[in-house]
Design a protein around this nucleic acid. Sequence first.
DNA 1: CTTATGACGTCAT
DNA 2: GATGACGCCATAA
Length: 104
Amino acid sequence: MTLADEIRDAIASIPAGHVASYGDVGAAVGAGARQVGSTMRLLDVDVAWWRVVRADGTPASCHAGTAPELLRDEGTAMRGTRVDMAVARFRPKAPPDGAASSST
DNA sequence: CTTATGACGTCAT
DNA sequence: GATGACGCCATAA
């Protein structure tokens, strides 16, 4: 099990109409915010990356132009071109004790 | 082993 | 509200 797998699982658990910040996903997998983004790009995970936005609701920099449209299509609460984190914010799960270690 | 980069986060200006 | 700067940790070379 690697960060990419943890990240993929965490993002896959995000319901339509909601989003999670890289920080939330990072915490859920026991990693940092940047690790989520960089690892995903490098691993090319096939997940709903558009449901993963920055802490302030701005879409990921590499999809900053397409994410808002995908989010609105799912009924995500939006604030202009950004996501209304006050409503659409979703936490994949609580910070596990084994995700960071991935021993088992 | 070290150096460099990054789909980020928060504070200061 | 937007931009600049530093810190964070994992991955690649």
